[in-house]
Simulated scan of single mutants.
Amino acid sequence: MSVNVAAIQMVSSRVLAENLQQAEALVAEAAARGARLAVLPENFALFASREIGVLAKAEAVDASLQTFLSELARRYQLILVGGTIPIPADDGRIYATSFVYAANGDCLGYYRKIHLFDAEVGDSQGHYRESDTYAPGDSLAVLETELGRLGIAVCYDLRFPELFRAMQDLEVDIIALPSAFTRSTGWAHWLPLVRARAIENQCVVVAANQGGIHDAKRQTSGGSVVVDSWGRVLAEAGLGAGCVIASYDAEEQAALRKRMPVAQHRRL
Rank of each mutant, 00 (worst) to 15 (best):
L193Y: 03
R112E: 15
V11R: 10
A255D: 15
Y101S: 15
V100P: 02
A188R: 14
S98N: 07
T133N: 08
L147V: 05
W190R: 14
S221A: 14
R165T: 00
V142W: 01
S12Q: 12
C203P: 08
R33Q: 12
A89D: 13
S49V: 05
Q21S: 13
L143C: 06
I114L: 15
F117K: 15
G53P: 09
A135L: 02
L170F: 01
G137V: 07
G242V: 12
G83F: 06
E251R: 12
A103Y: 04
V121W: 04
H189F: 11
S124M: 09
V39S: 05
Y95A: 02
M1G: 12
L158C: 01
C107Q: 14
L16H: 02
A188Q: 15
N209V: 05
Q125D: 04
G223N: 11
E162M: 00
I94D: 05
A237R: 12
G231R: 09
G186Q: 05
L147H: 07
R257D: 06
Y128C: 15
S184W: 02
G137T: 08
G186K: 03
G231N: 13
P192I: 02
Q77F: 15
T185A: 15
A32V: 09
Y128M: 14
I199Q: 09
L55T: 08
R129P: 00
L116F: 06
A28C: 09
L116Q: 06
V5C: 13
D91E: 05
V226R: 00
A235K: 06
L116D: 04
L191H: 14
E18R: 13
A58H: 08
G222F: 01
E71P: 00
R14M: 07
R149D: 05
L80G: 12
A56L: 04
H115P: 02
A207I: 02
N201G: 00
F99Q: 03
V54C: 10
L150D: 03
L20G: 10
A198D: 03
D106S: 14
A235Q: 10
S229P: 01
R93W: 01
Q21P: 00
F181Q: 11
S139C: 09
